[in-house]
Design a protein around this nucleic acid. Structure first.
Lengths: 149, 149
DNA sequence: TTGCGTGCAAAGGTTTTGCATGGCA
DNA sequence: TGCCATGCAAAACCTTTGCACGCAA
């Protein structure tokens, strides 16, 4: 068994995750720390996140391999029932936390013997805002909210 | 509208994808080409795969951000009405064609205003065979049917 | 004091990009 | 011939690792 130290860095990272109900990437955390003038190394962020993940304190998502992994504070067991909808038009990430998720998991398990990993799964499509705007132009303007290539 | 050229490289990559019903990574393709003594640059592989993805000819999966993306030949347009279940353990891709898919699309559209793109969406989890085998050892043997690291 | 956690820098990996060249139509 | 696709190398990017030092318990 390993000893657990409560360090200043760990507290800062955890606080930031708690403040942000949405996902944050490792890069976001590093940027946030730099903004605050706190000196925390990138490696420490990753190591801390890894440890927090193992402890189940935070959850890790892979939404887009380009931008790396996202982390989210796990508030409780209820977050297990949670899907992500990704809009391929504007890039928005929408959280779905309704009872349908459980229903879905049950269906796939009972009828297909498939144990869904909701944390890993991202459902692609077009969000409500974009489907209103969307002309049937055929060209999809990919995504990338916050990214300019 | 862009012209589409049928190049030797594109044909080779597509053939390799067709031969391999399981997923292959960009690195697999590069290795395969090198084995065959065919000279194809890494950048070409990625660019070709991107193009094939956009055309819907191949599908792209992110199973583990460490090992990069995996690609798989998409067999036909009929797959639009399906969901895909991807087993993160053995890499199997399972087609789901039951009425639940329509139900699911309806739910997301009505309750969340989100138009699901089923062809693009992959649901991750563990298939029935793997969940039987799976000992609660904690170590997951990742995926990689046909990979030896 | 013990040994876990940290910071820095360097390395690892995958994927993208720039530029001149090759090749399809 | 026009212009898309390619190859090579370099870059960008996220993440991990090694090592010496700092700091919690």
């Amino acid at each position: 068994m390993k000893a657990e130290y409560n360090t200043r860095q760990r507290a800062i990272i955890l606080d930031f995750l708690k403040e942000n109900s949405a996902h944050v990437s490792a890069r976001d955390i590093v940027a946030h720390l730099k903004e605050q003038g706190v000196c925390v190394g990138t490696a420490t962020v990753y190591r801390t996140l890894d440890r927090l993940c193992e402890q189940g304190v935070v959850r890790k998502f892979i939404i887009d391999e380009r931008s790396g992994a996202c982390y989210q504070y796990a508030e409780g067991a209820e977050c297990n029932e949670h899907f992500h909808l990704k809009c391929v038009s504007c890039g928005a990430l929408i959280h779905v936390d309704c009872g349908f998720v459980a229903e879905m998991e049950k269906h796939f398990l009972c009828d297909h013997g498939f144990t869904v990993s909701s944390g890993r799964t991202v459902i692609y499509g077009v969000c409500s805002s974009c489907s209103k705007i969307d002309a049937p132009s055929g060209t999809n303007h990919h995504c990338c909210k916050g990214h300019e290539h």
